[in-house]
Amino acid sequence: MLLLHGLGGTSDDWKAVMRELAPRHRVVAPDLPGYGDSGPIPGTSPAAVADFVWAFADALGISRAAVMGHSEGGAIAISMALQRPDRTTHLVLVSAAGLGRLVNPLLMVLGATPLGDLVPRLAKLPAGPEALVAALALFGSPRPWRVPKPWFTKMRQAASSTGVLVHAVVTLRQGVSARGQENLLLDSLPGLTQPVLVAWGTHDVMLPVSQAWGAVRRLRHGRLALVPCTGHLLPIEAPERLVAAVAPFLAEDGPRTERTVRTEPSADTGAAST
């Protein structure tokens, strides 16, 4: 399995998910270009980064893989599957970018106005990195106290780097404008031949959960998993519940034509996950 993190994140975002999946799968999570320990590449589009990830897979001798992407990583995962359908066995899209115009207005402001240029400058202020990470947690999860402390530590390190923040703003501006999300991938979804699981937190305020439904309707072999009382940081705040939906999906040998609805018990709410 190849796991792709979102805008501004690192491979550490997947640590808890990797622990859950590792007994059954070989799981690999790279730092995408410009983040963590990976340097930037000339292009920042999902297609350009998808090329990078396939080259990374070649270097590791990975011929075929299931690909799971979160947020911007979801858009990259779609591009990977379209580029090399013969090498992509399954696709998991977690709160994926590029599946509809609607996006949090804050991201539109940062992407379409000079205010986005202020973000890298916050890295130089005494409490700037902490403020950036706190804002991400508040917008990313309806219960930010559930986000593990190591994530805050790692993200503070990332938010202390002007270069990382500049790269994140450049990438954001390529994908978000005053109109909302650009480079939409909805029209490409019918071309996916792999089984696809679309997973979303029901309380995502960054990308609306309605985009999950719209995506599944366009897929040939689409499945939907909604996780109650979780937000955009689903892989970080509720990794066990995400894996509970992903594991049986990955166990299937081939595509299923019907669009089914799965329900899993929610341990902390008593509600159902669809």
Rank of each mutant, 00 (worst) to 15 (best):
L185T: 04
V196A: 03
G175V: 02
V209E: 08
V119N: 04
L224Y: 08
A134R: 15
P148N: 08
R84D: 10
R121S: 11
W213N: 10
R19Y: 00
A267G: 08
P208M: 05
W145S: 15
L60T: 05
R64M: 07
G270W: 03
A77I: 01
A168G: 05
A244L: 13
L207I: 13
R87C: 12
S11Y: 03
Q83E: 12
P148L: 09
D187L: 07
R179E: 13
V246I: 13
R19A: 15
L125V: 09
G100M: 06
P255Q: 05
L189R: 07
V176M: 01
V94E: 05
A135H: 11
A168C: 10
I236D: 07
D117C: 01
L99N: 04
W151Y: 15
L186H: 02
G36P: 10
A135N: 12
H25E: 14
N104T: 03
T260P: 05
K15Q: 13
R87A: 15
W54T: 04
G270K: 01
S177I: 04
A251Y: 05
Q181T: 01
L21Q: 04
L107G: 01
L32T: 01
F56R: 06
L172A: 08
F56N: 06
A159V: 03
E130R: 14
L189D: 06
H90W: 11
D204R: 08
R101D: 01
L115M: 14
E20T: 02
P265E: 10
P228H: 11
E258V: 07
G231M: 05
V133C: 02
V92H: 00
A137E: 12
T257K: 14
V169H: 05
L125D: 10
L122T: 10
